[in-house]
Protein backbone atom coordinates (compact mmCIF):
# COMPACT_ATOMS: atom_id res chain seq x y z
CA UNK A 1 0.00 0.00 0.00
CA UNK A 2 2.72 2.45 1.06
CA UNK A 3 4.88 1.40 -1.89
CA UNK A 4 2.01 1.93 -4.29
CA UNK A 5 1.42 5.38 -2.89
CA UNK A 6 5.09 6.31 -3.16
CA UNK A 7 5.11 4.97 -6.71
CA UNK A 8 2.14 7.18 -7.60
CA UNK A 9 3.49 10.31 -5.96
CA UNK A 10 7.05 9.90 -7.29
CA UNK A 11 5.80 9.05 -10.76
CA UNK A 12 3.37 11.95 -10.73
CA UNK A 13 6.22 14.42 -11.00
CA UNK A 14 7.61 12.80 -14.13
CA UNK A 15 4.16 12.28 -15.66
CA UNK A 16 3.29 15.91 -14.97
CA UNK A 17 6.51 17.37 -16.36
CA UNK A 18 5.56 17.44 -20.08
CA UNK A 19 2.15 18.85 -19.12
CA UNK A 20 3.79 21.53 -17.00
CA UNK A 21 6.40 22.51 -19.60
CA UNK A 22 3.84 22.88 -22.38
CA UNK A 23 1.34 24.65 -20.11
CA UNK A 24 3.94 27.19 -18.97
CA UNK A 25 4.65 28.01 -22.60
CA UNK A 26 0.96 28.32 -23.42
CA UNK A 27 0.46 30.46 -20.31
CA UNK A 28 2.96 33.05 -21.54
CA UNK A 29 1.39 32.99 -25.03
CA UNK A 30 -2.10 33.52 -23.59
CA UNK A 31 -0.89 36.25 -21.25
CA UNK A 32 0.19 38.16 -24.38
CA UNK A 33 -3.39 37.86 -25.66
CA UNK A 34 -2.92 34.99 -28.12
CA UNK A 35 -4.69 31.62 -27.92
CA UNK A 36 -2.52 28.97 -29.55
CA UNK A 37 -4.43 25.70 -29.88
CA UNK A 38 -1.61 23.94 -31.73
CA UNK A 39 0.14 22.65 -28.58
CA UNK A 40 -0.83 19.03 -29.30
CA UNK A 41 0.63 19.24 -32.81
CA UNK A 42 3.80 21.06 -31.70
CA UNK A 43 4.37 18.41 -29.02
CA UNK A 44 3.77 15.58 -31.49
CA UNK A 45 6.22 16.92 -34.09
CA UNK A 46 8.93 17.72 -31.58
CA UNK A 47 8.48 14.33 -29.90
CA UNK A 48 9.20 12.66 -33.24
CA UNK A 49 12.17 14.87 -34.09
CA UNK A 50 13.67 14.66 -30.59
CA UNK A 51 13.32 10.86 -30.69
CA UNK A 52 14.99 10.71 -34.11
CA UNK A 53 17.85 12.99 -33.09
CA UNK A 54 18.43 11.25 -29.77
CA UNK A 55 18.47 7.91 -31.58
CA UNK A 56 21.11 9.23 -34.02
CA UNK A 57 23.33 11.13 -31.62
CA UNK A 58 22.76 9.20 -28.41
CA UNK A 59 22.48 12.51 -26.60
CA UNK A 60 19.30 13.54 -24.83
CA UNK A 61 20.54 17.12 -24.69
CA UNK A 62 20.84 17.36 -28.48
CA UNK A 63 17.43 15.71 -28.74
CA UNK A 64 15.91 18.36 -26.47
CA UNK A 65 17.48 21.16 -28.50
CA UNK A 66 16.10 19.65 -31.71
CA UNK A 67 12.69 19.25 -30.07
CA UNK A 68 12.68 22.86 -28.91
CA UNK A 69 13.67 24.06 -32.37
CA UNK A 70 10.95 22.06 -34.12
CA UNK A 71 8.37 23.42 -31.69
CA UNK A 72 9.63 26.90 -32.48
CA UNK A 73 9.40 26.20 -36.21
CA UNK A 74 5.69 25.31 -36.05
CA UNK A 75 5.10 28.22 -33.67
CA UNK A 76 6.62 30.52 -36.30
CA UNK A 77 4.12 29.28 -38.89
CA UNK A 78 1.34 30.00 -36.39
CA UNK A 79 2.79 33.44 -35.62
CA UNK A 80 3.00 34.36 -39.30
CA UNK A 81 -0.66 33.40 -39.72
CA UNK A 82 -2.07 35.25 -36.71
CA UNK A 83 0.31 38.21 -36.56
CA UNK A 84 1.20 38.66 -40.23
CA UNK A 85 -2.00 37.60 -41.93
CA UNK A 86 -4.25 38.46 -38.97
CA UNK A 87 -5.93 35.07 -39.25
CA UNK A 88 -8.45 33.85 -36.71
CA UNK A 89 -6.46 32.39 -33.81
CA UNK A 90 -8.68 29.36 -33.23
CA UNK A 91 -8.54 28.33 -36.88
CA UNK A 92 -4.81 29.01 -37.18
CA UNK A 93 -4.08 26.97 -34.05
CA UNK A 94 -6.06 24.02 -35.36
CA UNK A 95 -4.38 24.29 -38.77
CA UNK A 96 -0.85 24.25 -37.37
CA UNK A 97 -1.83 21.55 -34.87
CA UNK A 98 -3.14 19.27 -37.58
CA UNK A 99 -0.03 19.95 -39.65
CA UNK A 100 2.18 19.00 -36.69
CA UNK A 101 0.28 15.77 -36.04
CA UNK A 102 0.55 14.83 -39.72
CA UNK A 103 4.26 15.57 -39.93
CA UNK A 104 4.84 13.63 -36.72
CA UNK A 105 3.20 10.58 -38.25
CA UNK A 106 5.17 11.06 -41.46
CA UNK A 107 8.52 11.17 -39.69
CA UNK A 108 7.70 8.71 -36.95
CA UNK A 109 6.69 5.70 -39.03
CA UNK A 110 10.34 4.80 -39.65
CA UNK A 111 11.04 4.25 -35.97
CA UNK A 112 7.77 2.70 -34.82
CA UNK A 113 8.43 0.44 -31.84
CA UNK A 114 12.09 1.47 -31.38
CA UNK A 115 13.34 2.30 -27.88
CA UNK A 116 15.83 4.70 -26.35
CA UNK A 117 17.72 4.52 -23.08
CA UNK A 118 15.94 6.69 -20.50
CA UNK A 119 17.49 9.46 -18.49
CA UNK A 120 19.07 8.66 -15.15
CA UNK A 121 17.49 9.85 -11.92
CA UNK A 122 19.44 12.27 -9.82
CA UNK A 123 19.21 11.69 -6.08
CA UNK A 124 19.83 15.04 -4.44
CA UNK A 125 22.53 14.41 -1.85
CA UNK A 126 21.22 14.51 1.69
CA UNK A 127 17.63 15.30 0.78
CA UNK A 128 17.03 11.98 -0.98
CA UNK A 129 17.83 10.12 2.25
CA UNK A 130 14.76 11.54 3.99
CA UNK A 131 12.41 8.59 4.46
CA UNK A 132 9.44 8.50 2.01
CA UNK A 133 9.72 12.17 0.96
CA UNK A 134 13.23 11.63 -0.33
CA UNK A 135 12.08 8.97 -2.74
CA UNK A 136 9.10 11.06 -3.83
CA UNK A 137 10.55 14.53 -4.18
CA UNK A 138 14.29 14.29 -4.43
CA UNK A 139 14.99 11.30 -6.67
CA UNK A 140 13.94 12.58 -10.07
CA UNK A 141 15.54 13.23 -13.44
CA UNK A 142 17.04 16.60 -14.24
CA UNK A 143 14.10 17.80 -16.37
CA UNK A 144 11.66 17.41 -13.47
CA UNK A 145 13.78 19.80 -11.42
CA UNK A 146 14.18 22.09 -14.44
CA UNK A 147 10.40 22.28 -14.88
CA UNK A 148 9.99 23.41 -11.28
CA UNK A 149 12.67 26.05 -11.82
CA UNK A 150 10.92 27.09 -15.05
CA UNK A 151 7.69 27.65 -13.12
CA UNK A 152 9.45 30.01 -10.74
CA UNK A 153 11.20 31.77 -13.64
CA UNK A 154 7.97 32.32 -15.56
CA UNK A 155 6.27 33.68 -12.44
CA UNK A 156 9.22 35.97 -11.76
CA UNK A 157 9.28 37.15 -15.39
CA UNK A 158 5.55 37.87 -15.57
CA UNK A 159 5.15 39.61 -12.23
CA UNK A 160 8.58 40.99 -11.32
CA UNK A 161 10.11 42.28 -14.56
CA UNK A 162 9.32 45.22 -16.80
CA UNK A 163 9.25 42.96 -19.86
CA UNK A 164 6.67 40.76 -18.12
CA UNK A 165 4.55 43.80 -17.36
CA UNK A 166 4.76 44.87 -21.01
CA UNK A 167 3.63 41.40 -22.09
CA UNK A 168 0.67 41.50 -19.71
CA UNK A 169 -0.38 44.97 -20.83
CA UNK A 170 -0.36 43.81 -24.43
CA UNK A 171 -2.52 40.85 -23.42
CA UNK A 172 -5.00 43.19 -21.78
CA UNK A 173 -5.20 45.81 -24.50
CA UNK A 174 -2.80 45.84 -27.46
CA UNK A 175 -4.08 49.18 -28.75
CA UNK A 176 -3.36 50.98 -25.50
CA UNK A 177 -0.01 49.23 -25.30
CA UNK A 178 0.80 50.42 -28.81
CA UNK A 179 -0.18 53.97 -27.92
CA UNK A 180 2.20 53.76 -24.94
CA UNK A 181 5.04 52.90 -27.30
CA UNK A 182 5.06 49.14 -26.79
CA UNK A 183 5.28 46.77 -29.74
CA UNK A 184 2.41 44.25 -29.59
CA UNK A 185 3.36 42.33 -32.72
CA UNK A 186 6.99 41.87 -31.74
CA UNK A 187 6.21 40.90 -28.15
CA UNK A 188 3.48 38.48 -29.21
CA UNK A 189 5.85 36.91 -31.71
CA UNK A 190 8.43 36.28 -29.00
CA UNK A 191 5.74 34.90 -26.67
CA UNK A 192 4.48 32.51 -29.35
CA UNK A 193 8.06 31.43 -30.04
CA UNK A 194 8.60 30.74 -26.32
CA UNK A 195 5.39 28.69 -26.29
CA UNK A 196 6.72 26.67 -29.23
CA UNK A 197 10.07 25.99 -27.58
CA UNK A 198 8.37 24.89 -24.34
CA UNK A 199 5.93 22.62 -26.21
CA UNK A 200 8.99 21.28 -28.02
CA UNK A 201 10.74 20.46 -24.74
CA UNK A 202 7.52 18.85 -23.52
CA UNK A 203 7.34 16.66 -26.60
CA UNK A 204 11.02 15.78 -26.30
CA UNK A 205 10.57 14.79 -22.65
CA UNK A 206 7.55 12.64 -23.46
CA UNK A 207 9.28 10.66 -26.22
CA UNK A 208 12.88 10.47 -25.00
CA UNK A 209 12.56 10.31 -21.21
CA UNK A 210 9.05 9.50 -19.96
CA UNK A 211 8.14 6.73 -22.43
CA UNK A 212 11.26 6.25 -24.58
CA UNK A 213 9.45 3.82 -26.88
CA UNK A 214 8.11 5.34 -30.09
CA UNK A 215 4.48 4.80 -30.94
CA UNK A 216 2.34 6.69 -33.42
CA UNK A 217 0.01 8.21 -30.84
CA UNK A 218 2.84 9.35 -28.59
CA UNK A 219 1.31 12.58 -27.28
CA UNK A 220 -2.22 11.17 -26.91
CA UNK A 221 -4.09 14.32 -25.93
CA UNK A 222 -1.46 15.72 -23.57
CA UNK A 223 -1.30 18.95 -25.58
CA UNK A 224 -5.00 19.50 -24.95
CA UNK A 225 -4.48 18.86 -21.24
CA UNK A 226 -1.76 21.54 -21.30
CA UNK A 227 -4.23 24.02 -22.82
CA UNK A 228 -6.77 23.00 -20.19
CA UNK A 229 -4.19 23.41 -17.41
CA UNK A 230 -3.73 27.09 -18.17
CA UNK A 231 -7.44 27.60 -17.60
CA UNK A 232 -7.43 25.25 -14.61
CA UNK A 233 -4.59 27.27 -13.06
CA UNK A 234 -6.43 30.53 -13.81
CA UNK A 235 -3.40 31.87 -15.73
CA UNK A 236 -1.12 31.71 -12.64
CA UNK A 237 2.20 29.81 -13.01
CA UNK A 238 2.14 28.39 -9.46
CA UNK A 239 -1.41 27.12 -9.73
CA UNK A 240 -0.68 25.70 -13.19
CA UNK A 241 2.18 23.70 -11.64
CA UNK A 242 -0.03 22.44 -8.81
CA UNK A 243 -2.67 21.50 -11.41
CA UNK A 244 -0.08 19.67 -13.52
CA UNK A 245 1.11 17.55 -10.56
CA UNK A 246 -2.50 16.89 -9.58
CA UNK A 247 -3.37 15.72 -13.10
CA UNK A 248 -0.19 13.65 -13.20
CA UNK A 249 -1.07 11.96 -9.90
CA UNK A 250 -4.65 11.33 -10.99
CA UNK A 251 -3.57 9.60 -14.20
CA UNK A 252 -1.16 7.35 -12.29
CA UNK A 253 -3.65 6.73 -9.48
CA UNK A 254 -5.85 4.93 -12.00
CA UNK A 255 -3.02 2.49 -12.72
CA UNK A 256 -2.16 2.04 -9.06
CA UNK A 257 -5.79 1.38 -8.11
CA UNK A 258 -6.04 -1.21 -10.86
CA UNK A 259 -2.86 -2.86 -9.62
CA UNK A 260 -4.35 -3.03 -6.12
CA UNK A 261 -7.51 -4.55 -7.55
CA UNK A 262 -9.78 -1.64 -6.75
CA UNK A 263 -12.29 -1.51 -9.55
CA UNK A 264 -12.50 2.06 -10.71
CA UNK A 265 -12.49 2.05 -14.51
CA UNK A 266 -9.33 3.66 -15.87
CA UNK A 267 -11.45 5.77 -18.19
CA UNK A 268 -13.06 7.59 -15.28
CA UNK A 269 -9.64 8.58 -13.95
CA UNK A 270 -8.58 9.71 -17.43
CA UNK A 271 -11.69 11.88 -17.64
CA UNK A 272 -11.08 13.59 -14.33
CA UNK A 273 -8.70 16.35 -15.56
CA UNK A 274 -11.13 17.29 -18.31
CA UNK A 275 -14.11 17.40 -15.99
CA UNK A 276 -12.17 19.39 -13.38
CA UNK A 277 -11.12 21.89 -16.07
CA UNK A 278 -14.72 22.46 -17.09
CA UNK A 279 -15.73 22.92 -13.44
CA UNK A 280 -12.94 25.45 -12.80
CA UNK A 281 -13.67 27.26 -16.06
CA UNK A 282 -17.34 27.60 -15.13
CA UNK A 283 -16.48 28.72 -11.60
CA UNK A 284 -14.09 31.45 -12.71
CA UNK A 285 -16.10 32.55 -15.75
CA UNK A 286 -19.30 33.05 -13.80
CA UNK A 287 -17.58 35.56 -11.54
CA UNK A 288 -16.78 38.56 -13.74
CA UNK A 289 -14.36 40.11 -11.25
CA UNK A 290 -12.28 37.01 -10.98
CA UNK A 291 -12.13 36.70 -14.78
CA UNK A 292 -10.86 40.27 -15.02
CA UNK A 293 -8.19 39.58 -12.43
CA UNK A 294 -6.79 36.54 -14.18
CA UNK A 295 -7.77 36.00 -17.80
CA UNK A 296 -6.05 38.29 -20.33
CA UNK A 297 -8.76 40.63 -21.60
CA UNK A 298 -7.67 40.58 -25.25
CA UNK A 299 -7.27 36.77 -25.41
CA UNK A 300 -8.11 35.48 -28.87
CA UNK A 301 -8.60 38.83 -30.54
CA UNK A 302 -6.59 39.76 -33.62
CA UNK A 303 -4.57 42.90 -33.32
CA UNK A 304 -4.27 45.09 -36.39
CA UNK A 305 -1.34 47.48 -36.13
CA UNK A 306 -2.42 51.07 -36.70
CA UNK A 307 -1.03 52.38 -39.97
Amino acid sequence: MMDALIFVLAGAFATATPLLLAALGELVVEKSGVLNLSVEGMMALSAAIAFMVTLQTGSHLVGFVAGGLSGALLATVFAVLVLGFMANQVAAGLAVGILGLGLSGLLGRSFEGMTLPGLGKIALPGLSDIPVLGRILFTQDVVVYAAIAATALVAWFLYRTKAGLTLRVIGENPNTAHALGMRPVGVRFLAILFGGVMAGFAGAYASTVLTPLWSQDMIAGRGWIAVALVVFGTWRPGRVAVGAYLFGAVSLLGLALQAMGIGIPAQIMTCLPYVLTIVVLVAISADKVRVRLNAPAALGESYRPAS
Binding site: W224, A228, I278, S285, A286
Partner: peptide, 11 residues
Protein backbone atom coordinates in the same frame (compact mmCIF):
# COMPACT_ATOMS: atom_id res chain seq x y z
CA UNK B 1 -21.79 31.15 -17.01
CA UNK B 2 -19.90 32.66 -19.96
CA UNK B 3 -17.55 29.64 -20.01
CA UNK B 4 -15.54 29.55 -23.26
CA UNK B 5 -17.21 27.13 -25.65
CA UNK B 6 -13.81 26.49 -27.26
CA UNK B 7 -12.38 24.91 -24.12
CA UNK B 8 -15.61 23.18 -23.07
CA UNK B 9 -16.26 21.53 -26.45
CA UNK B 10 -12.63 20.40 -26.57
CA UNK B 11 -12.80 18.87 -23.09
Amino acid sequence: FNASEIIVTLM
